[in-house]
Structures are given as structure tokens and as C-alpha cells.
């Protein structure tokens, strides 16, 4: 993702000398918002994964619904 952003920046810098490319480069720069958004959401997902790991560690000895199942199945 970082390389894609660097690539966009390089293209915007190197090919902006041709006036015919300016519209396309502006469109290309607009796409960086999607990359930034994706980076943010992936960072949140990564944090969520770590929190999930800790949560499962805290509740490791506790079945997620064993008591209820035993009652329902009459075990």
C-alpha cells in the first residue's frame, strides 16, 4: 500500500510536465483517499485481532454456552 502511494506520488511528480496528463493525475491523486481509508480500516482490524486474542485468552477455560446447552439437551 505504501509502495502504491509512493508510485502515485512519483507518477504525479514525473508526468505533470505534460499538460495533457493533468486531469488524469488529478483523478489518480483522488484515489489516494481510498488507500488511506483502507490502511485505517486494516489497522483497526489488526487491533481488533489482538483484542480478540486477549479476550479469548481471558475466557479460555469458559465454554461459550455449555451451561445452556446442557440444560437444553438434558445432559
Amino acid at each position: 500500500m505504501t509502495k502504491a502511494k509512493e508510485n502515485i506520488n512519483t507518477i504525479a511528480k514525473d508526468f505533470a510536465v505534460d499538460s495533457g496528463n493533468l486531469d488524469a493525475i488529478a483523478q489518480l491523486n483522488d484515489q489516494k483517499a481510498f488507500l488511506d481509508s483502507r490502511i485505517a480500516f486494516d489497522a483497526i482490524i489488526l487491533a481488533a485481532m489482538v483484542i480478540d486474542f486477549v479476550l479469548h485468552g481471558c475466557c479460555m477455560s469458559r465454554p461459550i454456552r455449555s451451561a445452556q446447552k446442557k440444560a437444553e439437551y438434558g445432559i
Binding site: F15, D18, N21, L28, Q31, L35, F41, D42, I45, M49
Partner: peptide
């Protein structure tokens, strides 16, 4: 987490779709 994953996937699909449609006329 699935909702966030959906949004991230949507961003990536939008990015790839839009980038594939962009053409630099002079290059």
C-alpha cells in the same frame, strides 16, 4: 470486524477499478 473488513474491501475494489480506468494521454 466483518463490517470493517467489508468497508476495507470496498475501498480496495473502488481503488483498483478506478485506477484501471485511468489513462495518462501523453504517457
Amino acid at each position: 470486524v466483518l463490517i470493517m473488513s467489508c468497508v476495507a474491501l470496498s475501498d480496495v475494489l473502488n481503488f483498483t477499478e478506478n485506477v484501471s480506468n485511468i489513462v495518462l494521454p501523453q504517457s
